[in-house]
Design a protein around this nucleic acid. Structure first.
Length: 289
DNA sequence: GACTCGTGGCG
DNA sequence: TCGCCAAGAGT
């Protein structure tokens, strides 16, 4: 299995994108901000927001000193704005519990809001060069194809996947960290979900899926995410109104973007419960101050 | 495990 | 056109 290392590492050395959070001078905070923003969000959309964010809040303390509403506003249209809330909460915890420095230990990272197994391993690995299994959707797809021989990984992370990733993880910390980002990059650029570029793949000769003739996914159909008319669409409309306003907005402005009163009120209440929105008077709402 | 939670680009 | 998908986490 370890004969995958050299080709992947060599390919990465030649083809890695020059992303800001990968620069030699990038801070751990920059890496952490990028990981929050990249959760379920493509790199191209993260780039400008990450740059603006780091310009305005170069350290965790800078963000922690701001209101959560400003964090949500700066988050812009990245989606899943609760991530902005969690990033703000994580920055606050870093100031209060870690002297303002992003912790390097996986366990300390995992304890922060908005950080799960993937993000904790990613920050420890990418920002601090530590040896961790970094299992994201890209890595899972690469291993599913190259090692298992299936087009896609299971719906949720399995023990078998973790075992494969653990077996393949180089023993040296620094090499393991590069390996982690290299496999992820291979999944993002070559071993893509749709239309993979096997002709450009450094491990094509060792890929079980390619050797099997690229068999199509046969498991249960992977259900897509409904959107039209959902609460998420409704919440998004409401958040857009509040983001684009200077201060509080009258409820009539919110009513204008979602005709279904029952759903609108339910979503508004949920947004308030989530602390993404606060009531600003009897019939006005705003981002939290 | 199954659901929920935004947004927009691409084939 | 429209379904699929993008460096997941929390409940």
């Amino acid at each position: 299995m370890s004969d995958l290392h050299d080709p992947v590492l060599g390919w990465y050395d030649e083809h890695a994108r020059d992303l800001p959070w990968r620069s030699a001078t990038a801070s751990a905070w920059s890496v952490m901000v990028s990981e929050f923003m990249l959760q379920q969000t493509p790199v191209a959309r993260v780039l400008p927001v990450h740059a603006a964010w780091m310009e305005r809040w170069p350290t965790p303390a800078d963000l922690a000193a701001e209101s959560t509403g400003e964090a949500v506003r700066m988050w812009g249209r990245l989606g899943y704005p609760r991530r902005a809330l969690r990033l703000h909460a994580a920055a606050t915890a870093i100031v209060e519990q870690h002297g303002g420095e992003v912790p390097a230990a996986y366990g300390d990272l995992l304890a922060l809001p908005g950080i799960g197994d993937y993000t904790a391993a990613a920050i420890a690995s990418f920002a601090f060069g530590r040896r961790h299994v970094v299992l994201d959707t890209n890595v899972r797809r690469v291993f599913a194809r190259a090692v298992v021989g299936t087009e896609f990984p299971p719906a949720s992370v399995t023990r078998a996947e973790r075992d494969i990733a653990t077996d393949l993880l180089p023993s040296d910390d620094a090499i393991a960290a590069t390996w982690a980002v290299a496999v992820m990059e291979l999944g993002a650029l070559v071993c893509t979900a749709r239309d993979p570029r096997c002709d450009a793949c450094p491990i094509a000769e060792r890929c079980a899926w390619l050797a099997a003739g690229r068999p199509a996914h046969d498991g249960p159909p992977r259900r897509g995410q409904a959107w039209d008319g959902t609460d998420r669409q409704c919440r998004g409309r409401i958040m857009a109104v509040l983001r684009d306003a200077d201060g509080a907005v009258h409820r009539s402005s919110i009513e204008a973007v979602w005709p279904d009163a029952e759903q609108r009120e339910r979503c508004l209440a949920a947004l308030v419960a989530d602390r993404l929105v606060v009531a600003a008077g009897p019939s006005a709402y705003a981002l939290p101050s």
